[in-house]
């Protein structure tokens, strides 16, 4: 790319780059904090320009949208880790799963493909942000099914992440699921649709460990198999 690649930020914020150029500019963004900041601000300005065109949609659209959402699974939700603890502020266990499999829903007689947007994904991903933090510490552990799990923690970000790319394929119709383990309680933190993507989350409270199990596709309410690995992020 040429030296004035930074000046593409305006065209990028307006979605006016070809797919190839947009991809190139996104790689540039990964290493250029100034452009990331600028894109964020210019997108905000563009969003306000778009918002100024507000126009009420036809009333019947609302029911159609709500019904379609009803049939559409969400990425794993953030969870209150210890919702039953009295007197304590519910604490959010924030998870981000960088990529999700495409879902197809049929609505209003038309098939709508809902795939991951190219542009609104984190740059870099939340997982990368943890592993690349200046104070990041990592540890790699063997799993019971013959894979490797790398855990990263960043005290300054108060976040942790798991790199699951070293895990074997969970098998047909199976997924890996991440759990927060506190005493005898296990709470789902994320279902890994894509082992390459890994997951990042807020650092759990003390006495909370992180476990991985293999579950039927879609994940389980409670683990249906023994963890293949369990780690205390504070030991990393």
């Amino acid at each position: 790319m040429t030296a004035d690649v930074h000046t593409l930020s305006g065209a990028y914020a307006l979605d006016a780059l070809s797919p190839e150029e947009a991809a190139e500019f996104r790689s540039h963004l990964e290493g250029c904090a100034a452009c990331r900041d600028e894109v964020r601000e210019l997108r905000r300005a563009a969003a306000l320009m778009g918002a100024a065109e507000a126009e009420p949609p036809p009333p019947e659209l609302k029911a159609r949208v709500l019904a379609a959402a009803d049939r559409t699974p969400q990425q794993p939700p953030r969870l209150d880790l210890r919702p039953r603890e009295r007197g304590a502020q519910p604490r959010r266990w924030r998870t981000w799963v960088a990529a999700a499999a495409a879902a197809v829903v049929v609505a209003g007689g038309a098939a709508v493909t809902v795939d991951a947007l190219r542009d609104d994904e984190p740059v870099p991903t939340a997982v990368e942000q943890v592993f690349e933090a200046e104070d990041a510490r990592t540890a790699t552990v063997e799993t019971a099914n013959g894979g490797r799990l790398t855990v990263g923690v960043s005290p300054s970000r108060n976040e942790m992440a798991v790199d699951t790319s070293g895990l074997p394929d969970p098998g047909e119709g199976r997924v890996y699921q991440i759990w927060a383990v506190h005493g005898t309680e296990m709470v789902s933190a994320a279902v890994l649709d894509d082992v390459e993507a890994g997951a990042a989350m807020g650092m759990p409270e003390e006495d909370t460990e992180v476990a991985l199990t293999v579950e039927p596709a879609g994940g389980s309410e409670q683990p249906t198999s023994a963890p293949i690995v369990q780690v205390d992020p504070r030991d990393v």
Binding site: P57, P58, L61, R64, V65, A68, A69, T72, P73, Q74, Q75, P76, P77, R78, T95, W96, V97, A98, A100, A103, V105, A107, G108, A110, V112, V114, L117, D120, P122, A126
Partner: peptide, 20 residues
């Protein structure tokens, strides 16, 4: 425009857990 609106809201629904 209605189809686009629906696609957008489904994206928002799906991706809200990852919104930061």
């Amino acid at each position: 425009a209605e189809d686009v609106t629906q696609e957008v809201f489904l994206d928002v629904w799906r991706k809200a857990p990852g919104f930061d």
